[in-house]
């Protein structure tokens, strides 16, 4: 049997799964619920504060990791889930899922570098 290259995507899946298990709930809570509902001050996400954060080189790397890894985690899991739901395994589904993750990662990198 052919040697598998699955370890590339699987390691991204596992790394992204681990990272998002730890940080995604609290991030969703802050940005999507606590601040918009006024449980936390709007200053937390203010323009000046976020700009300083996004211009810091170390924060750029952290932000990129927090976007990139969960994105690949999600893409890989979506691919297997589509198969679970009855879609045949094939190049089309694979290209769409991994392609979307690649595009998202590039967009994240470009945006972060330009801030």
């Amino acid at each position: 049997m052919a040697k598998s290259n699955k370890p590339i995507v699987w390691s991204l899946f596992a790394g992204g799964g681990m990272l998002s298990a730890f940080v995604t709930p609290v991030l969703i809570f802050i940005t999507g619920l606590a601040v918009p509902l006024g449980l936390m001050s709007l200053d937390s996400l203010s323009y000046d504060r976020m700009l300083v954060l996004a211009q810091n080189p170390i924060a750029k790397i952290v932000l990129f990791a927090v976007i990139f890894l969960p994105l690949w985690h999600a893409a890989h899991r979506l691919l297997t889930t589509l198969h679970d739901l009855g879609l045949p395994k094939g190049r089309i589904a694979m290209t769409l899922c991994y392609g979307a993750a690649a595009l998202g990662s590039i967009a994240a990198a470009v945006v972060l570098l330009r801030i």
Partner: peptide, 26 residues
Amino acid sequence: YMAREMSCVFIGAYSVLIVLGLYRLS
């Protein structure tokens, strides 16, 4: 199991949302 797998839709969408937020910031 399927609920666990479906979490990927939200986790992926949230990543896209952060990119969008950073784009608007820029």
